[in-house]
Amino acid sequence: MNMKKMKYATVILHLALIILCFICIVPFLLIVVSSFTDETTLMINGYSFFPEKLSTYAYTYILGGGGVKVLHGYVVSIGVTLIGTATSIILTILFAYPLSRRDLPLRNIFAFFVFFTMLFNGGLVPSYMMWTKVFHIKNTFGALLVPNLLLNAFYIIMMRTYFTTTIPTELLEAVKIDGGSEVTTLSKVIIPLAKPMISTLAFMIGLGYWNDWMNGLYYVTDSKYFSVQNILNRMLSDVQFLSSAAATQSGISSVTSNLPTTGVRMSVAVIGLLPILMAYPFFQKYLVKGIMIGGVKG
């Protein structure tokens, strides 16, 4: 009886999760299918999972004319993501570890110092003035790397929580008695223990870098430094601008015949998303393990 009830519950459990996953994945499948659907078919038959006529026009449009650019964009994106993630994770660890030490004087002030950045920001114009006038990052690789993304308060808080909850104080003391310095403690004890969390955060930071188009929009005008998201986002935002009232007012729209169509926009989404989905299973292995122990304040 009990066995039967258990089985029954398991079926319901899986059913619930399968429905949930279905809801998550179906809209994504719809984009993929639409990106391969013939434009006219899309018009006449509407959006469908089983289009009558397939077409790779959208992809040839993107990769045909600007194929080299997209490829170059991938190179820029990968470079930025790798360097950015590595630098960012080092900074995060270096900040979070001292913050996790209950005995650190002024610990709360530093915690507030970090948290405060999550609430207030000075806005785009002052940031832009500073980064371009003082640091001259406009149209450099650094423009994609440095502003906003290098250190994030939320990740520091997560990392700190992980350290406080998983690394026993006794362990730290044992290392100290053995004569280890703070640096050896961090590199020999803390970092190996925190590997799952580090890879988790690395994934999130990497995702942030990969998906970022704002830095490119604000700080880059030279196509040499366009990341793939920049190129794709430009395609989309060109459409949005040209269909805005501002454009029509100044008569810009009179010659805009070769704007990307619906299918192209959908394939833009697929091209931007694909590498993440492919990299995801690799990170995923560590992802849950990482948060598992870290939590936010577990």
Partner: peptide
């Protein structure tokens, strides 16, 4: 410097402040 249409208003606003 050429600005793409979609980026034009954002970048022009910023460049005018610089």
């Amino acid at each position: 410097t050429w600005l793409g249409w979609g980026a034009y208003s954002n970048q022009m606003n910023l460049m005018l402040t610089g």
